[in-house]
């Protein structure tokens, strides 16, 4: 199986799973921003996402697989990369030829993963328990108050904002890089890199705005 051993096949697999997660972020942001604009829309969208069969039992497992796959493949690639140079340079000026974000995807990725742990603890596990363990009756209005209550803590709000900064750095390199990995480097690549920078700032900044807005509007 070439995908398990070949460097390029692994790169392509990493790129595809990364792009899938980039698309997911846009969807997640679109729903979250409604919490600032119109709580009722947020409630109805959340209720739909929480009870739609396709979303819950097809899209959600695919998403979780995508995250786990992206993480494990990233770790496999990193182990191989670190093993390729056992004796390190005494002097290495990485900033002269590449960005910090591009060289430290493992660090930004690890912070995002730790954030996902907190995020699951905050929202996903309580939601699963609420729906499938306690089998509570449906309540399409419970989502917005739950969300606001979660952002009451300044520590949690701060941790979320920190994670979004690292998410921005991860996207700054990862988004356009995934196209390069899939062999897409042409006259449109400059435009893509521009869009990557916009996306890498806009989406995390949007999430930071939502977190701070909810924290300040208790």
């Amino acid at each position: 199986m070439a995908i398990l051993t070949s460097s390029i096949a692994r790169k392509v697999a990493m790129a595809l799973s990364g792009l899938f997660l980039v698309l997911f972020l846009a969807q997640h942001f679109t729903i979250n921003i409604t919490s600032v604009i119109d709580p009722e829309t947020f409630n109805s969208l959340s209720h739909f996402m929480g009870h739609n069969f396709v979303v819950q039992f097809i899209a959600q497992p695919i998403l979780i697989f995508g995250v786990v796959f992206h993480f494990i493949m990233g770790l496999i690639l990193e182990i191989r990369n670190r093993g390729a140079r056992s004796i390190k340079y005494q002097s290495f000026k990485g900033n002269n030829n590449s960005t910090w974000a591009s060289r430290n995807m493992l660090i930004s990725g690890a912070v995002i993963l730790a954030f996902l742990g907190l995020h699951f603890y905050d929202f996903w596990f309580p939601e699963i328990v609420h729906k499938y363990v306690e089998s509570n009756p449906m309540d399409p209005t419970r989502y917005y108050p739950d969300l606001v209550q979660k952002f009451e803590s300044p520590v949690r709000t701060g941790l979320y904002c920190l994670a979004f900064v690292l998410l921005a750095l991860h996207l700054w390199h990862g988004f356009a890089s995934s196209f390069q990995s899939m062999g897409w480097n042409n006259k449109y690549s400059k435009g893509l890199r521009g869009f990557t920078k916009f996306y890498a700032i806009f989406i995390p900044l949007g999430f930071i705005f939502i977190a701070i807005y909810l924290h300040l509007n208790q």
């Binding site: 460097s7 030829n97 591009s102 390199h173 890089s177 390069q180 990995s181 899939m182 062999g183 480097n185």
Partner: peptide, 30 residues
């Protein structure tokens, strides 16, 4: 090691070989 598209190689290459070639290799390989 694997390429993680940092671009350091094309900056340091004395002959100006670019990442376009790596993208082409990826296409050729796939």
């Amino acid at each position: 090691g694997n390429c993680s598209n940092t671009g350091a190689c094309e900056i340091e290459c004395p002959k100006g070989i670019t990442l376009v070639n790596i993208a082409r290799m990826n296409r050729e390989y796939v």
